[in-house]
Design a protein around this nucleic acid. Sequence first.
DNA 1: GTAGGGTTAG
Length: 832
Amino acid sequence: MFLKSLKSSKTTPSAAVNQTISPQITNCNAKIRRFCEVGSLKEAVDTLCKSPKWDLELGTYCLVLQLCAERKSLRDGRRVHSVISSNSWQVDSVLGAKLVFMYVNCGDLATGREIFDQIANEKVYLWNILINEYAKVGNFGEGICLYHKMKEFGVVPNSYTFSCVLKCFSGLGFLEEGRKAHVRLLKLHLDTDTAVVNSLINFYFKCRRVNSAQKLFVKLLDRDIISWNSMISGFASNDLPEKGLEIFDQMLQAGLVPNLTTVTCVLAACADISVLEFGRMLHGYVLKTGFARDLTCNNTLLDMYAKCGDLDSAIQVFENMVDRSVVSCTSMIAAYAREGLSHAAIRLFHEMRDGALRPDAFTVSTVLNACASSNLLDNGKEVHDYVTENKMQSNVSICNALMDMYMKCGSIEDAQSVFSQMSARDTISWNTMIAGYSKNGRPNEALNLFLEMQHQSKPDCITMSCILPSCASLAALERGKEIHAHILRNGQIDDIYVANALVDMYMKCGALILAHLAFGMVARRDLISWTIMTAGYCLHGLANEAMSSFNEMRNEGIEPDENSFSSILYGCCHSGLLNEGRQFFTMMEKDCGIKPKLEHYTCMVDLLANAGRLTEAYRFIEKMPLKADAAVWGALLQGCRIHHNLKLAEKVAEHIFELEPDSKASYMRLANIYSEAKIWDKVKWLKDKIGHLGKEKNQVCSWIVVKGKVQIFFAGNVASHPESKNIETFLKKLKCRMNGENYIRSTKYAMMDKDEVEKEVALCGHSELSAMAFGLLNLSRGNTIRVTKNSRICRECHDMAKFISKTLGREIILRDSHRFHHFKDALCSCRG
DNA sequence: GTAGGGTTAG
């Protein structure tokens, strides 16, 4: 007998039960129980099915169901349930509870709920099971619903209830409801239960109530490892990773041993603040403890290295991983993308697509980011195909990433098409489109969409910082003011991006005083705030103000970056401050360790050339460590024009045409130089060339806002405006007066062929003059005339504006594509 | 008696 049982036990447990016990046990209940004890689920259920129904006991059903639940075998569970039904067993609270537990545990929440609703459920245990499962699957609403229902049924919640339902509240961000539950559990004296307090801590952290969470932790006497881990992850997910690391330190000092979760949370915090060496140390600990076998831990490790900029280590972790998940690959794609290795990112995406780890929504968004940042439209479209083939186009995040990719690749129509097909949009969807329009030079579309958004979604701080640049580029001061009011009403002014965008908008709309006021209200000014002010002053030709703003910033301990230097150098150019410009240029590399870029060299060439130091400028370009581009040469060409150096101009133009054979502006500039030198055949030749290049993408135009309405005047087609007759008459009278008063006109004009003057006039189209005239005719005295032009102001119009400012006593602020011109008393802020 | 609280990727 002994030998026999020993032998059979080597075969299978079921055989052992059959052969060793069956002779003695005739009762099927005992037999099934024995199967359950040794874990033979299949045999237990088989026996159950074959047993006569009147022999089976309640306990037996319960035991088998328990095993089904533990094994998560829905198939066996259902068989047992059908036996129970066909045997006409009463599903009372005991058996019902077991059935519910089985179904829920096996993942069939719906059937579990059905049975739950049919039985008397005074047991808090069962309520908890369901609430917990609803929380787990993310159906927080139903979890909360049950929590309220149990109150109606008079069932008193226990500690488990609160840990489950708090998850539901935080899942939906129901802060007030959660607080009420907090009050309730205090009354039930459950606030000393560590698991409950841990749940509360997590609830408050998820609702971004860091102080509440911290207070609970401080008061908690029996802290366990989960309490500490909750604090670390809570701080990290509330943008306080340093605090998380502090807690970790305290935890070690308290003598606790970090577990896998601790290390994972701490690694994530390291990633957030790029503390590579500490992360590396933890990596050593991970290897020592054997946590390195854990997939999640490895994923976090990989991500930590990637975010700390150590791509090689990230690749090493990835390659050493025994098993990888979609998360591992997605993190790796993000790692490549972060380093600008978009092609490597796309390659890995293709490997995933063709392999077993199918890219999910996260992967798709990540790889789209890579395409967007490197302008890879074709690759982006391939990803779009994958999205369509896998029916992922209903995912909002994916659509947002697609729109962002299309916008960044300049394919506005594709972005619009995705946007229009979305059945549900979130704030990010709107923001992506608005930002895309703004950055692609479509400010009107951005503003229209912003209006539409206000009816359908709630604009946030990001919306505001995206829409303001559109107001700025249109110089739409009134719209900008409206948005300012909107920002104040919604308490968004404390957001540094919003505040900076606001200052920038006022600056670019020519509202210097408002810009200054808004700047004064910025609570924590950063480098961007200061650079906006510096650049703004430069735009208005206020070089002294720009320089003091730049210096003030440095005095406040904020170090300039390459953009700050671009701004200040640009300002020096506008005001012709060669020596100052040279000082800043030297300061940039010598004091701040910033290598000058092409734009900085352009400014220096501009300064030298404008000052008439043409040869010096030419030599400066030759000595540049970077290859000069068309902009650098263009600055010199402009100088050649001013100082009438035809010979050098021709030499310089050759460089430009080599770099940019289709640049209309450069041909135009050279044509003007020839025309000033009265070399008409060359002028004709160049103008023919310009004619062959076709129309500019953007039509030249000027506009003015009067009584909330934008009035646009297109160059060469001013007559299309309904008030063109009045404008024409007005301007004619003005011109007569100007000639009568023998107003100083450009001597160069006087020397030109009359015919050529007309030609130049036709090329300019004088759209800015029409816009100014419209303003003068429609705005009462005292109102500043604010005109915006999408290209440079022409000389004649510039003279005209000076004349008007004096003769009619009106202040005119004209913003062209380069800068502001404040006309007052026959003077302009650009000083000519 | 059964059950609950902490982790990764855009």
